[in-house]
Amino acid sequence: MEDLLILDIFWNKRLVKDSSGNEFEIFRGKDYEKDWVDLGFGYSKNSRGVFLWDNECFKKYAKQIDLTSFEMIQANTSENTFYFKDVNSIYLDSYMSGQVKIENANPKKFQLIDIDKGYITSNDKDFWYGTELPYRISNMTPINESYQRVDDSIFFGHTHQVLCDTQTFEIINSKVSTVARDKNYVYFKSEIIEGACPKTFKFMEDCIADDSPPYLECDIHFYAKDKNFAYFINVPFGFKIIKTKDLSNFRFIVRDGIGYGIDSNFYYEKGRRKKLK
């Protein structure tokens, strides 16, 4: 191997030339770096650790991982979700969780329920990605992609209980998955929007209608109002209460491809007030 000239280097092999001028491929794990093992989908292991391409994975758990038994269980490449196990534990690398060890999951009693949704079960406990659920998945009914109903309880994001009136709880508009109400309050995720009136709260028709003109981040940015205030909603990240003094004239417009709230004196970019010019 020492007299080979390396012509090109790939992740799992090399193109080389010998002293006679013959070109051929040699393979990592077989012909060189013989402790290297391809785990699939860019993941590998050797005697030093676990890697995704050339970057070390699961660094936090490096001293806990049993490298001899470490292997990939299942992968969902479209969701960037990959499950692994060793003799002691279950590990997950996902856009939803990062690189984690799933606490209280037993590799000997582990079953994937739905890899697309991140549901697994182990030891008579159910998990959503890397988080242990406070209920069994069989008792859960999805309300939408954000909220779940479990018996007489409502959860946001599978783990955050919404302290609400469960009989009147509803999603206000299907396009805005993180805003809901009951007879008493309006909620963003599991948080009460203080001062919002559930009876009169509604999203501005010009930003929610199917024929509304497109605008920047129109899938996550929305404006709403009720009898008290106007509101800017950023679906994944938060909300802003707009205390306009001209609520009756508050409306939504699209200008140069950007959506704004506007009243007689100000316009509101992502809920932030700016003086009309």
Rank of each mutant, 00 (worst) to 15 (best):
D114Q: 05
Y135F: 15
W128N: 01
F169M: 12
I102N: 04
L112E: 07
R149G: 11
D165Q: 15
A105P: 12
I113A: 13
E145D: 13
D152H: 08
V150N: 12
V150D: 09
P142D: 08
N106S: 04
S97F: 09
K125G: 05
K108S: 04
I115Q: 01
Q99C: 11
Q148K: 14
V100W: 00
G130N: 12
D124I: 03
F156S: 09
F169D: 11
K125P: 05
G157A: 08
M140Y: 06
D124V: 03
T166V: 15
D114P: 07
G98K: 06
Q111C: 03
V150K: 12
Y95N: 14
E145G: 12
F155G: 12
Y91L: 01
I154H: 08
I120F: 01
R149N: 12
S138R: 13
I143D: 04
G118W: 00
D126I: 00
Q99I: 06
T141G: 08
G98C: 07
D124T: 02
Q161T: 15
I120C: 06
F155C: 12
Q167V: 08
I113E: 11
I137D: 11
L92E: 01
D151E: 02
Q148M: 13
Q99G: 12
S122D: 01
T166S: 13
F155D: 13
T131Q: 05
P107Q: 04
I143K: 07
K117R: 11
T131L: 03
D116S: 08
D151C: 02
I115G: 00
I115S: 01
M140E: 14
Q148E: 15
D165A: 15
K101D: 04
Q161V: 15
I120T: 08
T168Q: 12
H160Q: 14
F156D: 10
K125R: 14
E132G: 06
V150P: 13
N123K: 00
G118Q: 02
D165W: 07
K117Q: 13
Q148H: 13
G157T: 03
P134I: 04
L133A: 01
I115T: 02
V150W: 12
A105R: 11
Q99L: 06
G98A: 06
F110P: 00
